[in-house]
């Protein structure tokens, strides 16, 4: 199979939500797809040199908790770091790839990583905040690739 294209818009910057674009992007590339991940708003976190993403249960009643915990308790300082640590440990014990590994696999497979220029400016990011080799573009840049894609996903 060749010639298929996948375009993904990544808008989320939490540990859990960073997985879908990177898993699908790397797997599609392994299947022979040409892939572009367009990172906008919080999705720009996927492009940071140091991936320091966190997970939170706040506002997410669907997150399975090891023990029942009142929301106000979940909001205490340090809880987010603790939950992130627990999630990372659980992922490691289950053989789930780290975000760093998946991103590296994407880069190796020549997945095009595009930073949304408007949100880069909005959040006062500098190109030195991001990994090398990414591209910068806007909505029209996205459509240039997405318009020819077989699959487009908004994450």
């Amino acid at each position: 199979m060749s010639g298929k294209k996948l375009a993904i818009i990544a808008t989320k910057g939490s540990l859990d939500w960073a997985y879908p674009p990177l898993i699908l992007g790397s797997t599609a590339a392994a299947l022979g797809y040409e892939v572009e991940i367009f990172c906008t708003f919080y999705g720009l976190q996927l492009l940071r040199k140091k991936l320091d993403l966190k997970v939170t249960s706040l506002g997410n009643p669907g997150m399975p908790m090891p023990m029942p915990m009142p929301v106000l308790l979940q909001a205490l300082p340090g809880m987010q770091s603790m939950m992130t640590l627990m999630m990372k440990q659980k992922m490691k014990s289950k053989g789930v790839a780290s975000l760093e590994e998946l991103r590296e696999l994407c880069i190796e497979a020549e997945v095009r990583l595009v930073a949304c220029q408007m949100t880069v400016d909005l959040f006062d990011f500098d190109s030195s905040d991001f990994i090398d080799g990414i591209e910068y573009g806007g909505a029209a840049t996205f459509f240039e690739f997405a318009g020819e894609s077989d699959i487009t996903l908004f994450v």
């Binding site: 790397s26 797997t27 289950k94 789930v96 790839a97």
Partner: peptide, 13 residues
């Protein structure tokens, strides 16, 4: 062994 989706596929590739 011990690796979860999508790592077995990516390693195989």
């Amino acid at each position: 062994s011990g690796l979860n989706c999508p790592l077995p596929i990516l390693r195989a590739k």
